[in-house]
Amino acid sequence: MPAAQPGRIVPAAYWTQRILALALTLGVIAAGLIVSRSDQVQWSVIPQYFFDASILQGIRLTLILTFLAIAAGLVGGIILAMLRGSGNSVLVGFAYLYIWFFRGTPLLVQLIFWFNIQLFLPEIGFGSHSIPTNALISSFTAAMLALGLNEAAYMSEIVRGGILAVDRGQSEAATALGYTPYQTFRHIIMPQALRVIIPPIGNQTISMLKTTSLVSIVAAQDLLTRVQNIYAKNFLVIELLFVAASWYLIMTSIAIVMQAWIERRFSQEGPARASSGAPRWSFNQLLWRG
């Protein structure tokens, strides 16, 4: 074997990694062959249901639930973050209690609770004017309440972390220039905090696209519910679940691309990082100062 030339860098041969990579590749190929050659799956019917009208309606509802839940969660999260920094023990206690409860109980339990709320609250109203709870809280409304209220608990921590990541000197400079607390928050703090907030919000949105499948337990007619309705009639369970999984992958892939694009737009001026040892925000001073 000829000697290595002086100054030439010879990469190390990591044989363990190569063997593991080969084993994984062969395993994936073998699994694909086993699945594709199964006589129990009618692969030819999958394209027939991929753009079925009922499936497309389920996709539409899934996207609506995702958008509304994230929007409600973001608004609720901002309010909760402000309450936690209010300095008022009652408001702070309420925010802590809310976050503790909704993060500490399963979302599936919350869905079932809202769907069955009429069991202990038959009517909603004031005085002689009341509406039956069944008429007001439909499966869609129950799904929205559960998803939105639960998401607010997580969004509050995301918003609070983003605001606390901004240097406190920004608020002091805005105050010196005569900015009101709202103007400081709207024009100075939030644009910088968004660089920190957007990545986890994007992750929450992608997660919510899949979490909406839980609403099938209350028959909210989302994508998974529509798929279940179809295979309950034709018994093509695996085929229809493959259709649902494919659509979830498509939607999450699009969301990932959009998240990356938004992150690039907000990071053009660099990340919002305070210098080491710089004072951090006091929520009480930032959002509630007189």
Rank of each mutant, 00 (worst) to 15 (best):
P181K: 08
N203A: 13
F185S: 14
F113A: 04
I131M: 14
A95F: 00
N203R: 10
M144G: 02
I137G: 04
W100S: 05
P122L: 07
V159Y: 03
S130Q: 15
I99T: 12
N203V: 11
A174C: 07
N150F: 10
I131D: 05
L119H: 13
L177H: 12
T141C: 09
G76H: 04
M144Y: 08
G93S: 14
S138Y: 03
G77M: 03
G202R: 05
E172T: 11
G77D: 01
R84G: 13
Y154R: 01
T141S: 13
L83G: 04
A153R: 01
I137W: 05
M190C: 09
Y98L: 04
T184M: 12
L177N: 14
F140H: 11
L145C: 11
L194W: 06
L119A: 15
G87V: 07
G125K: 08
G125Y: 06
P132N: 14
F94Y: 11
L194D: 03
G77T: 04
I124E: 06
L121V: 15
L108Q: 10
I112V: 15
L121Q: 13
Y182R: 15
Q204R: 15
L80A: 00
Y179I: 04
S86M: 04
F113H: 05
L83K: 01
E123K: 12
Y154T: 01
G161W: 00
G125N: 07
I197R: 00
L91D: 04
S86N: 02
G127E: 08
A143C: 10
A176L: 13
F140A: 14
F115G: 02
G125C: 05
R168P: 00
M155A: 11
L83W: 01
D167Q: 08
I163V: 15
F140S: 11
A176S: 15
Q118S: 15
Y179A: 13
P106E: 11
G127K: 04
Q183V: 03
L80W: 01
G169V: 09
I198G: 09
Q183F: 00
G169F: 09
N203I: 07
V90D: 07
T184Y: 05
V166C: 06
L111D: 01
N116W: 08
I99R: 04
T180I: 04
P132R: 11
I201F: 13
L145F: 12
L145R: 11
I131W: 14
I112A: 12
A146V: 07
P181D: 04
P191Y: 01
F102G: 02
I158L: 08
G93P: 06
L164G: 02
S207P: 00
A95K: 01
F115T: 06
Y179R: 08
L147T: 03
V90I: 15
T180H: 06
I189M: 14
V109W: 13
L107H: 09
L145A: 12
I201H: 01
I206H: 03
P200S: 11
I137D: 03
T180P: 00
F115L: 09
S130A: 13
I124R: 08
F101E: 00
I124H: 05
L136P: 11
Q192G: 03
G125I: 07
F126C: 08
G87I: 05
A146E: 07
G202M: 09
